[in-house]
Write a protein that binds this DNA or RNA. Structure first.
Length: 553
DNA sequence: TAATCTGGCCAC
DNA sequence: AAACGTGGCCAGATTA
């Protein structure tokens, strides 16, 4: 049973439309503002699949009223998948773009339209029931409906989880963060400018380079000053500076590190992004083409190790931090049905498994070779080690190689559950056509070859990263389901952070062990859900800790 | 002055 | 040692 839920004509009111599994409308009800919460709660006891035009536009309002739902279908997110998938066909696949394809409207924060604002937007005037019917028909006619259903359910559940994480927030101690900044940088400057430690380092750099007016924040100025001081460098990046013998190097590298801390996660960041002891990421579900989540503001995709000590659980609570070990190699092994690589991953460390199998001699080599296969490197150590991987694991390596070749031919590639890569741009095809002409110049041929290989690296990585992302979505959904039955509503373990293959759960201390067990069970269930009986393991690194900085990565 | 580009660095 | 995939975000530099 589906229930389409959308804002009614009055602020706070709701329209609920019951739709059966084939798209037939059973009932169409308007609910007044005062009755909205209880009406939704009552319907929730039947565990329907709630259908949102866009989860991010309505679900936060439900969360604010204390409502959390079990299952959902996000029309806008699902349309993107269904339209682009190589496993679907029919009207939805071929129709001209309409408002359901439009990118998300920028969230408005002016207060004028908040709450009722979404009721007046274009999207909600669009016919959600008709769109659901189109999507159901498209799923029905897909090559593998069960895979798509699983993907769409996980994607939609992810959309709810993204809202819930935002609402709950990641515990963040301002006092700890502030102390950390002061110890590293000196006191916060009252009128802006550089804090004391940073200014001292800037002066050391100027002295060592005999450049009294140098602004070390300007790469161009800095490069000129380094060269004038006799250093033969091509850039000011730290990997190139590291290893050079010169008095400027030590203060310069320290300056870079501290300057980064200051500009990315300094006092200004703290003021803007941490309120009431919580950091609230704005996740963009499927914001990455591969299906990974992106984020908007706050740099939630890159919480530096330097500031993680500020992430501390509430009193009486703790974190369960879990990350999937060597996720992408395991995903590729399972997709390819590579029993031998799956066997190497039977231990907790797949890279060590490759060493034990005699493929390579060290764990570091195993990792470099594997990442080279996943990213498509063509030079250096990983290219040298790759042939051993191809020899011992022809199925797994063959899968990513085939994805690369398909991309080079301009074809789309598709994940295990049915998310497809975008076709290359018209300009890409034009480039290939131009290079194929007899009149093509060597420069054109070179550029085309380079662009072709680049697109091949993208599609190569797409199948692995994209399928890993859908495994992670299934993991999240399974985990959320398990957490929902634990404890009381006010003291229930809940997700507070997610990043690609890692989660943080904030849990009352007494539920920590149970939560740690649940997160691994969820990973096992996600693996079975995707790959059935194929003998692939998805071990996690799990840490129970009150401080994120203490979690072993 | 605002928008866009560049170099650099953080995360997985 | 990076190259080689996906992102976000900053300050400075350049362009409109």
């Amino acid at each position: 049973m589906f229930v389409v839920i959308e804002p009614g004509s009055e602020p706070g009111s709701l329209r609920l439309v019951d739709v059966d599994e084939t798209g037939g409308v059973l009932a169409d009800t308007m609910v007044e503002r005062e009755d909205a919460s209880s009406a939704v709660q009552i319907r929730e006891t039947e565990s329907p699949r709630w259908v949102f035009a866009r989860t991010s536009e309505l679900y936060p309002q439900l969360l604010a009223r204390g409502i959390r739902l079990g299952r959902s279908h996000d029309l806008a997110l699902c349309r993107v998948i269904l339209r682009r998938s190589t496993t679907t066909s029919g009207p939805l696949h071929d129709a001209p773009l309409d408002e359901w394809d439009a990118p998300r409207e920028a969230p408005r924060d002016d207060g004028l339209l908040s709450g009722l604002g979404v009721a007046g937007s274009m999207r909600d005037r669009a016919d959600a029931v008709a769109e659901l019917q189109r999507q159901l028909a498209t799923i029905q006619g897909a090559t593998s409906p069960w895979r798509l259903r699983r993907l769409l359910a996980a994607e939609s559940c992810g959309a709810m989880i993204a809202c819930e994480i935002h609402a709950d927030g990641l515990p963040w101690r301002r006092d700890v963060h502030n102390r950390l900044l002061t110890e590293a940088l000196g006191p916060r400057p009252v009128f802006g400018g550089r804090p004391a430690t940073l200014e001292q380092l800037a002066n050391s750099i100027r002295a060592a380079l005999a450049a009294p007016a140098l602004n070390p924040d300007s790469p161009a100025e800095l490069l000129r000053a380094l060269r004038a001081a006799g250093l033969s460098v091509n850039s000011t990046s730290k990997w190139e500076l590291r290893g050079i013998e010169h008095p400027v190097i030590e203060p310069l590298l320290r300056y870079k590190s501290l300057s980064r801390l200051m500009t990315a996660n300094g006092w200004a960041w703290l003021d803007e992004w941490v309120h009431d002891g919580r950091f609230r990421p704005d996740y963009i579900v499927a914001g990455v083409v591969t299906g990974r989540w992106a984020t908007d503001g706050g740099g939630a995709l890159q919480l530096p190790k330097q500031v993680r000590p500020a992430v501390i659980a509430d009193d009486g609570w703790t974190f369960v931090v879990a990350d999937a070990a060597q996720l992408e190699p395991r995903i590729v092994a399972a997709m390819a049905g590579d029993v031998r690589m799956a066997e190497a991953g039977h231990s907790k460390d797949l890279y060590q498994g490759l060493v034990d199998a005699g493929t390579v001699d060290t764990r570091a080599h195993a990792k470099v070779a594997m990442l080279g296969a996943l990213y498509g490197s063509t030079t250096g150590e990983s290219a040298r080690l790759m042939p051993r991987l191809m020899r011992d694991y022809p199925r797994a390596t063959g899968l990513v190689e085939a994805a690369a070749r398909a991309g080079e031919r301009g074809e789309q590639v598709t994940t295990w559950l049915g998310r497809s890569s975008p076709p290359p741009a018209d300009s890409w095809r034009a480039m290939m056509r131009a290079a194929a002409q007899v009149s093509a110049t060597p420069a054109q041929e070179r550029a085309a070859r380079s662009a072709r290989r680049e697109w091949g690296r993208f599609t190569r990585n797409f199948v692995a990263q994209g399928t890993a992302a859908e495994w992670a979505l299934c993991w999240l959904a399974e985990l959320r389901h398990r957490l929902r039955s634990m404890g009381e509503a006010s003291s229930r373990p809940h997700l507070v952070y997610f990043l690609h293959d890692e989660v943080i759960i904030h849990t009352p201390t007494e539920h920590a062990d149970e939560t740690a067990a649940a997160v691994q069970k969820a990973a096992d269930a996600a693996g079975r859900g995707l790959f059935g009986d194929f003998p692939i393991d998805f071990p996690l690194g799990v840490t129970i800790t009150r401080s994120y900085a203490e979690a072993k990565p």
